[in-house]
Amino acid sequence: MKTLSEINIGERLEVILDPVSRMDLIKYSGASGDFNPIHTVDAEAAKAGLPGIIAHGMWTMGNLAKLFTPYYDEGLIEDYQIRFSGMVFIDDVITLRASAEREENDSIYFAVHAINQKGQPVLKGKVKFSKYA
């Protein structure tokens, strides 16, 4: 495992998730308290005009943060900003990615993305990871 200091600008952190399952979303509903049924119940998703249940945007955003979890000894996520741009369906294979763009005053600025198996973006945003002195 690299330390954060060993990550060069231009370098990428990446993880590919297992295909999204209904159980993933049931667990997130329970853990987060967001029981909106379009995330778990087919009939409710259909009523909302969706082709199937969709993941909570916050489930994907929560997953993405794990790219930075190994570095909490060195600093913290000071800013984490996401714009949700596409829906995540059951069986989608999501790739989570963070690209180190620049370093300034002991902070590393990352561009973050999540894309599905078709290469379509489902969310994108920014992370400012600030290192402890």
């Binding site: 379009i38 909302a48 916050m58 909490y72 984490y80 900003q81 996401i82 949700f84």
Partner: peptide, 17 residues
């Protein structure tokens, strides 16, 4: 409303974990 809302953006700022 409890249904039909779209979550557009989410932003966190922390001073410590």
């Amino acid at each position: 409303p409890s249904k039909g809302l779209i979550h557009g953006e989410q932003k966190y700022h922390y001073t410590r974990p």
